[in-house]
Design a protein around this nucleic acid. Structure first.
Length: 428
RNA sequence: GGAGAGGUGGCUGAGUGGUUGAAAGCGGCGGUCUUGAAAACCGUUGAGCGUUUACGCGUUCCGGGGGUUCGAAUCCCUCCCUCUCCGCCA
């Protein structure tokens, strides 16, 4: 959501930002409605002032028992009434148009975000860790997992259809181990506060983070009024909704382990094999609520918190700065972390860290106050995966696979897996 | 699922049609007192929008929306949310 006053005063910068996003200019349309609204408001408010004065007169006249004067004033006001009535209708209608337009406009990218149409134009920031070499042809994760007997798409499809998976035995355990390891790292080493949030939310929460009203088709909705969260970003960021936080409490850092639900409406045919793209997956999510002057630095920090998971797991990855065309709706700047998958012979997204500025804060009315100062300001919000657990499991399987089909358990996970060092095929 | 109660400013909480943007308390800010602090006392303290060089002026806001009325925090309708009791239950 944008500050109307800012658009009014920076209409060129606004259109320029939209252009960088690959969108046409909108300031003219916005300002036209704004203009309409303001000139209308002036007339309406004059009429209201007149009515209020007359009403006070009536009050006084009645109090002093002067019925004649009261009736005269009532008659006078009656004439303005219909104008005010229709004027209020018009105001409502204009406001609705304005909010509808404003709430569908994506956030503007930071100046340093490269301009581009799609993921091919993202900017490579760094590559970390050596890509492992194999003296055999590395398999994809689903081949490995299915051969082990602990990764079962068929059984999942039987009860849930496509894009679901059933993990069992040591792989189910590894999913839990990964989550535990990530949570411990983010809370104990990086200072995040662990949260166990609701995973069903109402639409105002989704409006706050920007999934609604534009992306309803990506969400699962219950038969009631709840939606299943597509990411814990939604409940975590909405902690700040309708709050006024003292500035010395900022930044606030939250981490949550939760399932995520996505309809994948626009992805038919993509990543149909394996567990890369599922309707349901587990993720450890990081969210920061900061002051405006802290948010850029916080994005760097958050990204490195996510990277540390991969460092400790010994997985190779690269960090990209997303170009304008590949960024999400609410983001001003996004870093994607892509992990190396030997089976696919490529890097795949495993985390996405974004700074949203005050875009979400405006939508959810999340503010902070500086001690001793008058008034409030909008907070800045950031979110990032730390990490997507399902895809991390994929990465471990592919990177730690051996020629005989067994999979070595990364050292940092062993304490979480009862000391298990090697995953071998299930005995039938 | 059945029956009730309620949503008021940063917080607690009065207010049931007429100078009420709203008592009181807490908190915040300023001051007096004090070597300093605390306590006490005095004063002050909402937000959005429009307009104005500015002081200011106007308007809207007592969960959201609609209605009644010359006039609504106060009456009516509706939606949302919270809570209590009973039943069921992880």
């Amino acid at each position: 959501m944008f500050d109307l006053k800012w658009i009014r005063e920076n209409s060129e910068a606004f259109d320029e930002g939209l252009k960088r996003r690959g969108l046409g200019p909108l300031s003219a349309e916005v300002l036209k409605i704004d203009e309409e609204r303001r000139s209308h408001l002036q007339a309406l408010q004059d009429a209201q002032a007149e009515r209020n004065n007359a009403s006070k007169e009536i009050g006084k006249a009645k109090a002093s028992g002067d019925e004649a004067a009261a009736n005269a004033a009532i008659e006078k006001v009656a004439k303005i009434k219909s104008f005010i009535q229709s004027g209020e209708d018009t105001e409502r209608e204009i406001n609705e148009r304005l909010t509808a337009l404003l709430s569908s406009i994506p956030n503007l990218p930071h100046d340093d975000v490269p301009i581009g149409e799609d993921e091919t134009q993202n900017e490579l920031m760094r590559q970390v860790g050596g890509v492992p070499s194999f003296d055999f042809e590395p398999k994809e994760h689903f081949e490995i997992g299915e051969a082990l007997g602990y990764l079962d798409f068929e059984t999942a499809a039987k009860m849930s259809g496509s894009r679901f998976v059933l993990l069992s035995g040591p792989l189910a355990r590894m999913e839990r181990a990964l989550a535990q390891f990530m949570l411990d790292l983010q809370t104990e080493t990086h200072g995040y506060t662990e949260v166990s949030p609701p995973i069903m939310v109402k639409k105002n929460a989704l409006y706050g983070t920007g999934q609604l009203p534009k992306f309803e088709e990506d969400l699962f909705k219950t038969t009631g009024d709840h939606y299943l969260i597509p990411t814990a970003e939604v409940p975590l960021t909405n902690i700040a909704a309708d709050c006024i936080i003292d500035d010395d409490y900022l930044p606030r850092r939250y981490v949550a382990y939760s399932p995520c639900f996505r309809s994948e409406a626009g992805s038919a045919g993509r990543d149909t094999r394996g567990m890369i793209r599922q309707h349901q997956f587990m993720k450890v999510e990081l969210v920061s609520i900061t002051r405006p002057d802290q948010s850029d630095e916080e994005l760097e920090r958050m990204t490195s918190c996510a990277e540390e998971v991969l460092n400790r797991l010994g997985l190779a990855y690269q960090v990209l700065k997303l170009c304008t065309g590949d960024m999400g709706f609410g983001a001003r700047r996004t870093f994607d972390i892509e992990v190396w998958l030997p089976g696919q012979d490529t890097y795949r997204e495993i985390s996405s860290c974004s700074v949203c500025g005050d875009f979400q804060a405006r939508r959810m009315n999340g503010r902070y106050r500086v001690e001793g100062e008058k008034g409030t300001h909008f907070v800045h919000t950031l979110n990032g995966s730390g990490l997507a657990v399902g895809r991390t499991l994929v990465a471990v399987l592919e990177n730690y696979q051996q020629a005989d089909g067994s999979v070595v358990v990364p050292e940092v996970l062993r304490p979480y897996m009862n000391g298990l060092e090697l995953i071998e095929p299930a005995k039938k």
